[in-house]
Structures are given as C-alpha cells and as structure tokens.
Amino acid sequence: MLEFIQTITSGIAVGSSYALMGLAMVLVYKTSEVVNFAQGEMALVVSFFTYMVLENYGFPFYVAFPSALVFAAFLGFFLEFAVLRRAKEPNILGMIIITIGLEMILMGFVSWKFGADPKTMPFPMSPYDSVEIGGVFMSSLEVLTFVVALSVMAILFLFLKYSKLGVAMKATQQNNMAARLMGIRTNRILMVTWGISSVVGGLAGLLISPTTMQPYMMWDPMLKGFAGAVMGGMTSLPGSVFGAYLIGIIENLFGLYVSIEFKSVVAFTIIVLVLCVRPSGLFARHYVKKV
C-alpha cells in the first residue's frame, strides 16, 4: 500500500513540471490557437541565462532569479514581435511550423553558446533533500515545484477571468476581428501572452535545472506538458494541470507495475485514446466555430 501511495506521490511530483509547461502552452493556444513547440527551448534559454548570471557573473540568487523572469518575458515579447508577427498571411499550421523552427534555432544556440556538457545550476535548496510523511518521500524541490505549479494555475485562472487584460486575451482568441473592432490591440495582446507564457515556462526550466542541465533537458517535459494539456482540452487551465498530473501518475504506476521499458510511451497512448473518445479533451467544452 505504501508503495502505491509513494508511486502516486512520485507521479504528482514529476507532473508538476509537466503542468507548468502545459500551462504555458495553453496560454498561447488560448489566444492564438497556435501550439508553441518552442516553449521548452524558450525555457531552456531562460535557464541557461540564469546559469550564466549565477556562475559566470556571480550574482546572488535574489538578483538572478527575478531578472531571469524579466528576461523570460522579454524573450517572449521579442519572439512574437520579431518572428511570428512577421509571417505573411499566417495560418495556424504555418505558425506551428515556425515555432518548430524556433525550437531548433534556440536549442542550437544553447548548444553552441554553452556546450553540451551537463551542468548543474546553483540553487538555494538541494535537489536531493527530501520531505518524508509516514514513509512517503518527496524531494523538497518537488514540493516547491508543486506549490509553484498550483499557485501559477490559480493566478492565471483568476487573471484570465477577472482582469481586463485577461478578458481581452480571451476575446482575441474567440474572434480576433471583433476584438479588434472593439478597440483591443490584438497584436499587443498576443505579444503579452507570449511574454507571460514564457515566464511560466521559464519557471519550469528554473525548477528543473538544479538537478542537471543540458540542451536536451526541456524536450521531454514540454512534450509531456503538451500531452497533459491536450488531455485537458488545450483551452482549460485546470484541465491542463490535471492532465499533466494524470500523465505523471499513470507513467509511474505503469513503470512500477507493468513495464518500465514502455513507461515513456504510455502517456502518448493515453492521449490517442482520449482523443478518440473525447476529441476536445476531458475538460473543455466542445467549441464549434460558426462560419
């Protein structure tokens, strides 16, 4: 029984970083219906920027981490403004391809600038200390990630529901033309969305980096986060978080009780199944666009 609870806890622990990535992707998707495959690599750039500030320039944590988040926001602004907005007659598929291109460029940049040797980020908390409750373990870094993921979800949820900017973001997604006619500067909204999603993704990157950093580290969390978001319906924030945790838990259970070799694949099998049964995901209402 203890083993079962431990496995669930482990699933939740790993699900938190997926959840953050999922949230970031859902944000962009909500406003532009673009799936941003560069999300992981944007977080990668943010993490390595932080590493550089801490290791090479010797800034303290309380300077490095906030400045990393500011950097993340500007990175998001920049990519939207300089790359995506420049696309001529953009359709969604084209935009998605652009994000895949960005993904490769950013990863190439990090490999070139920092080399492919694994590194580790200094962090105020050891990633290898743990909290124990009744024989069940969770590392303190995972507890932190869990708290961050849930708080970010709550903040974003409230922000989109009640703030003016949040409502404008929603409006932009639902009908770009009408939103613009209502006086919303949709371009700017898109830029801000990219900024916010970059910050959320960057948080995930910063929380993954204290164990090991290397240019490939964000690919897996990004894909799993995306998978979780698809499961949750791609437009629902709580849905994507729930989906991410579900994937973490199923992976761990499957790894322990069925086959550890196919643990990584199981997540994607579930997605195919979910999409067959409920194409719009577990949480989102099926949204039909009127022509």
């Binding site: 431990q6 496995t7 482990s10 992976e251 322990l256 070799e261 990584s264």
Partner: peptide, 16 residues
C-alpha cells in the same frame, strides 16, 4: 532495470 535514453524521471526505476 532498463533505462531508456529519453527517460528523465527516474523514480519508477529507483522504486524498483
């Protein structure tokens, strides 16, 4: 315990 190159989460392995 087999480890796949793409695996990043090692908890199930350690549990075993």
């Amino acid at each position: 315990i087999p480890v796949e190159k793409s695996d990043t989460d090692m908890k199930p392995h350690v549990m075993k």
